[in-house]
Structure formats: C-alpha cells, structure tokens
C-alpha cells in the first residue's frame, strides 16, 4: 500500500466528484485542479523508493553509488512538465469562464445548454 498514491487517488475522486456535481463553473475548474494535484502526487509516488534521496549528485551521493541512493528522477521530470501544462489548462479554462460570464452573466453550467441534440 502506497500512502501518497492513495492520497492522490482520493484527491482525483474528490475532484471528479466536484466536476460532476458542482454547478458553478469556477467550482468545476477547482475540481479539475484538485484532480491535477492528485495525479501529480500519484506520479511522484511512483518514482519514490523508500529511504533514498533526491536525484542530485553531490557530496553525499557520488556518481558511483548513485544507482543505489537516489529515487527515480524520471517521474519528477514528467511531473514538472505536467504541472506547467496543468496551469496552462486551468488559466485557459478560467478565461473561457470570464468570457462566458461576460456574454451571459451566469456562472451556472446549466445556463450553457443552448447547443444540443
């Protein structure tokens, strides 16, 4: 059992619940950002190896024994990218909400159903 991964999945579930049930557009985006945080936690937890240190070679970690002392650097590298992309998506979604609000003066998702069938 991986505690951080559990936490990550719980956050994904809570975020998803918010996305599916909250009417307010801002709340829906908050839901997405909670999901995002959860996913990042999951990714980092995948790279973690118990009792090891950060993947930086310095005085305490020499090149020779790095393979036995550091955690997996790849998930960290992936998460860096994912975090920035998450911000980009969140900001863009918020911009859509701002524009939608400008046009319709409503933040409820139920008021944006003019296209259907």
């Amino acid at each position: 059992m991986n505690l951080v991964m559990t936490l990550g999945f719980l956050l994904v579930i809570i975020g998803l619940w918010a996305m599916l049930t909250q009417k307010n557009l801002i709340k829906i985006i908050i839901g997405f950002s909670i999901i995002d945080t959860g996913v990042h936690l999951i990714i980092v937890s995948i790279g973690y190896i118990k009792g090891r240190t950060a993947p930086i070679l310095d005085a305490s970690v020499s090149v020779a024994d790095a393979a036995n002392k550091i955690v997996d650097p790849i998930p960290s590298a992936l998460v860096l990218t994912a975090i920035v992309i998450g911000l980009a998506v969140t900001a863009l979604m918020l911009t859509f909400v701002i524009k939608l609000y400008q046009k319709n003066k409503s933040l409820s998702i139920d008021d944006y159903q003019e296209l259907k069938w």
Binding site: I26, V44, Y48, A54, S76, V79, L87, T95
Partner: peptide, 27 residues
C-alpha cells in the same frame, strides 16, 4: 518528503502560487 525537491519547488510556485493568483484574477 518523497525526495523530489524540484517538484516541490515547482508545485509550490506554480501549483499553489500562480494557479491561485490566476483563479483570483479570474474572480
């Protein structure tokens, strides 16, 4: 705690810092 200081810095700066600012700006 998971020995990922790079991620920690990024999450603090972008995930919590900037994202919140962006939300607040939108609000």
């Amino acid at each position: 705690l998971l020995a990922a200081p790079d991620v920690a810095m990024t999450e603090a700066a972008i995930g919590s810092g900037l994202t919140t600012v962006v939300f607040l700006l939108a609000l």
